[in-house]
Each structure stands twice: as C-alpha cells, then as structure tokens.
C-alpha cells in the first residue's frame, strides 16, 4: 500500500511538471516552415509588386512596414525590391473586398503557374491577399490590419501557423502583433 502511494504521488508530481509542455509547443526551426517555398536566393532580394488595390484600400503603410520589418531582421538574408509590374514580381500584394469570409490568404505558385496547394514545391510566385471587407465586418483596428498584413507576408517566407498561446505574428486571428516576435525572428534567422 505504501509503495502504491509512493508511485501515485510521484506520478502526480511528474504530471504537474511535464503536462504544461504537453499542452502546446512553439514551432521552431524546420518545424516552423513548410517544406515548399522560395529559394533563399529569391528571399535575399525578392522582387515585389503592389496592385493598385493596396493603395486604394489604404494598406500601403502596412505592406511597406511589413517588408521593412522582415528586411530589418539581423542575421537573416531577407530583402525586397519594387519591380513595378506584375509579371516580373515574385511576391505580389493585393487587397480584395468582395468574396469569401477570410481576413487574408497567401497563394503560392510553381514555375508552371500552378497553385502549390500542399506547400511542398519550389515557388516562383506568391500572392499576398488581404480582405478589407472582412476586416471592416469584424471591426479590425489599424493594429489588427497591420498584424494581418505582416502575418500573410510571413507565409510568403514559408512560415506556417503557430498555435495559441505562442507569441508570434504567425498565429491566426484578431491579434495585435505588428512586428515579427522573437520566435519569428529566430525562425527566420535559422531559415535565411
């Protein structure tokens, strides 16, 4: 009986110690990324294009800020150059307001123009799309829209979603992160 009691006590103690790490885990390094994506040589200085919808819906500040935030990460080779046209750009930005009920999506494409739906291939292009009507409908603040923009651009670097309660711009939902968080930074430094 005494032995059983000891085992039970020790099991309870270990549960208390171990369980918090069982509930969730930050995705780090290779686990934070899809296997597909742009080559590092592209990310080093990605050609980008902004559709006129970005300015007309008032998202220019957030897209510019998002690019600057990622490019500003030390020890990560991330950069952008504006090529001014759709055809030559690797990363293209759009804003929509008439369609499905989502805040943002990132559509990657292979070199033959096919949508890489399973995120496992080499990308030639990526479309970063924000949905202004969704954000209006759900009372997104300026900060929320900023977070959505930086989140969607993060997907163009092959970053996967992080899960609650991880502190990361790659978490889904109505959040207030407007800059890459330490976990995002370390993951991008690892990747690029």
């Amino acid at each position: 009986m005494k032995k059983i009691k000891q085992v039970v006590i020790s099991f309870v103690l270990m549960t208390i110690l171990v369980l918090p790490t069982v509930v969730y885990a930050d995705y780090e390094d290779e686990h934070a990324f899809w296997t597909g994506g742009f080559p590092a040589s592209v990310i080093k200085l990605a050609d980008y294009y902004e559709d006129p919808s970005v300015a007309s819906f008032g998202y220019s500040y957030w897209t510019a800020n998002a690019r600057a935030d990622y490019a500003g990460i030390s020890n990560a080779n991330i950069g952008f150059t504006n090529v001014g046209n759709y055809a030559d750009a690797e990363i293209r930005f759009f804003v929509v307001s008439y369609g499905d009920d989502y805040g943002g999506i990132m559509n990657p494409y292979t070199s033959n123009g096919t949508l890489d739906v399973f995120m496992t291939n080499t990308w030639a292009k990526a479309h970063v799309i924000m949905n202004d009507k969704f954000m209006d409908d759900n009372n997104f603040t300026s900060t929320n829209r900023h977070k959505t923009t930086i989140h969607e651009l993060g997907h163009a670097f092959s970053m996967r979603h992080q899960v609650s309660p991880t502190i990361s711009v790659m978490r889904q939902g109505l959040l207030n992160y407007t800059d890459p968080q330490p976990l995002d930074i370390s993951n991008l430094q690892w990747k690029y």
Binding site: M14, V22, L115, F118, M119, T120, N121, H161
Partner: peptide, 23 residues
C-alpha cells in the same frame, strides 16, 4: 510522461499540413 508528451507533440505537428501533389 516525457515519452507520451513527445508523442502528443509529434501528433499535433503532423496534423498541420498535407503532402499531396499539385494540379
């Protein structure tokens, strides 16, 4: 418990993406 925890973490990771071919 640690063995169980690693298993659960692996399960939650493997559910996140699929690996089928692109059309």
């Amino acid at each position: 418990l640690s063995t169980t925890a690693c298993g659960l973490e692996q399960d939650s990771f493997s559910n996140d993406t699929t690996t089928k071919k692109v059309a």
